[in-house]
Design a protein around this nucleic acid. Structure first.
Length: 292
DNA sequence: CACCATGTTCCTTG
DNA sequence: CCAAGGAACATGGT
């Protein structure tokens, strides 16, 4: 079996899907060999330290925090579990492949397991594979955690005159929201992306929080119910690919309310969707539905 | 050649 | 110290 899990849009839902897929495949497997082909993704961890830590270690769990993957491993029974932090950046992928499959051009780190390779490939090398955990410690609340509330979120918005869309991308405010789902959540909440954060009324903050949770959990739900058994169906549809036969996925354009839909009619009111640039990134919104 | 791209981090400026 | 803006990172698609 040849597993490739691919996502072209690694935000929280895509990372969650990846974690669910990889967790059982890695569980209890032992690292025999570590190859580092791009030291940059180690983000400060020297390659020799990574090797010393991982060779002979066994994976004991995989979880997610925001867009980060947390690989738990231990070197011997009774050891404290240690954490390896992964991040897909913009173009990263992680998957298992048989040992005899040639490594991809942009393989950044390869872990040799007993009968397969764990491969982290990343064309742009913006991703991470590191023992450093500082950035994870700084993350804001998990939006989908049951106990999470918008209190800290509201607190952080108060006093900021930055646009709310830009604030949503701040991972210390809420973890895991990226450009796409920030646009989508603002549409659902009926809030203009240009609105200053501190100008949001309390009920708008509450609505935005609900929208964030809805957008993220629906994306996970949709991903979970897709037949994850196709490959090569399209290059930019943002879906997940495993080895197998292409099937008909929901088309890329039908997935979003506003993202990447410039000049197309709003699905609610037919007003053309507008694109603008905030903090150097594209924002898509409906000027009619998002006036709040 | 131009422009665009899902993310994070660093540097400057105020 | 903080907030905010911009560039940088590296590569590929259109």
């Amino acid at each position: 079996m040849f597993y490739i899990l691919r996502s072209v849009m690694p935000e929280l839902p895509e990372v969650e899907m990846l974690v669910r897929h990889l967790a059982p495949l890695l569980q209890n497997k032992t690292v025999r060999k570590v190859r580092v082909r791009r030291e940059r993704v180690l983000a400060g961890t020297p390659a020799r330290i990574l090797k010393k830590s991982l060779v002979g270690a066994r994976f004991t769990g995989l979880s997610r925090r925001g867009k980060f993957l947390l690989f738990a491993f231990r070197r011997a029974d009774g050891d404290e579990p240690r954490i390896l932090v992964g991040h897909l950046g913009m173009t990263g992928r992680m998957y298992l492949a048989p040992i005899n499959v040639p490594l991809p051009k942009h393989a950044a780190v390869v872990l040799g397991l007993d009968r397969e390779n764990f491969i982290f490939e990343d064309t742009r090398y913006f991703g991470r594979f590191t023992l450093q955990t500082e950035t994870v410690d700084k993350l804001g609340p998990e939006p989908l955690a049951e106990e999470s509330t918008p209190e800290g979120f509201r607190q952080a918005l108060r006093g900021s005159r930055q646009a709310i869309k830009v604030k949503l991308l701040d991972q210390t405010l809420v973890a895991g929201v990226g450009n796409i789902y920030a646009c989508e959540a603002l549409f659902l909440a009926g809030i203009s992306p240009k609105r200053q954060a501190r100008k949001l009324r309390p009920e708008q903050v509450a609505e935005l929080w609900r929208s964030i949770r809805q957008v993220l959990s629906q994306a996970i739900e949709r991903g979970s119910t897709l037949p994850l058994s196709y490959s090569g169906a399209g290059k930019r549809d943002g879906l997940f690919y495993f080895g197998g036969t292409p099937q008909a996925p929901q088309s890329y354009q039908e997935r979003f309310w506003v993202y990447d839909r410039q000049d197309q009619p709003c699905r609610r009111c037919q007003t053309p969707i507008k694109r603008l640039v905030q903090a150097g990134r594209s924002t898509f919104h409906c000027p009619h539905c998002q006036r709040g």
